[in-house]
Design a protein around this nucleic acid. Structure first.
Lengths: 149, 149
DNA sequence: ATACTTGCAAATCGTTTGCAATACC
DNA sequence: GGTATTGCAAACGATTTGCAAGTAT
């Protein structure tokens, strides 16, 4: 397909609203696969969508929505998005990573029985005191995970 | 070896101090491998030892100290000890679990560059507010991980 | 035109499992 | 003696990699 026409069409019915621009800003080429995955990640259920997916889940979703993407590409894309600050990787279980579309500072509930990860709404967690980071190190991130049974 | 003599010898130079009894209390048979691993885990550097090891690390240590234990047994043992409340499993990285000999409530520093996990001393972390657990669930554990770069 | 991306299949890594041989009580 | 435990090697699931073919700028 002529790429110029392709992009025009994309903007016409705005199925990727700001996605193309967002990716370009991060020097990530807006390929068909990346746009499809980005759409699934960032543009589901309107604006306030914060999702927590595994690579396998996203791969299934893509397949379900008729997009053919290889699992390897899903992994590549998730990591690229994470490196670009569009996603955040959260580790709660040994053996698989979850990717969170909410990159603001926040914490999580983890339902051990179902494997579901969920943002803790608002300022539900307040850290009153944090220790000094050991000499020579700086705090990169503080993760609070409330494990539920 | 005659088990009676074996146990007597064990107590004579106390290489397993209370370990045998601790295991028996949890209905875990004090086999040679479990005692060796338990010793490496709980009785290094005197009393105040809190260690954070992966299965592979413990397996290497065992080998280094001349004990022949299969990796499968190391995994079995770590999980049995964890189920018995002698260890706690901590997940900080996708792809491998760490086991913490400190089972009291406490939190962690994680040095991303080296992969080292370390207890935060004293009451370095204070959680001033925690959210209500969602209906139908109860808090099993709260993990705070301070990731350092 | 060129460099970046993709898909596939194979490789890798941590972990688990099946089962015969062995150790504990 | 009878059951639990061990070791080995094979199986496993998630993730990564190498490389030829396809795509974006």
């Amino acid at each position: 397909m002529n790429p110029r026409l392709y992009n025009k069409a994309m903007n016409a019915n705005r199925p990727y609203s700001g996605l193309i621009e967002r990716l370009k800003l991060k020097a990530i080429r807006p390929t068909r696969q990346r746009l499809a995955l980005g759409k699934l990640l960032f543009e589901r259920d309107g604006e306030a969508c914060n999702r927590h997916v595994t690579a396998e889940q996203l791969h299934s979703e893509a397949a379900a929505s008729g997009v053919r993407v290889s699992l390897a590409t899903v992994y590549n894309t998730l990591h690229q998005f994470t490196a670009a600050g569009l996603l955040r990787e959260v580790v709660v279980e040994p053996g698989q990573s979850m990717f969170d579309t909410n990159v603001d500072e926040h914490h999580h509930f983890y339902f051990e029985s179902s494997g579901v990860l969920e943002d803790i709404p608002g300022h539900g967690v307040e850290l009153a005191r944090l220790p000094e980071p050991p000499a020579g190190s700086r705090v990169k991130r503080v993760d609070v995970i409330i494990r539920l049974a």
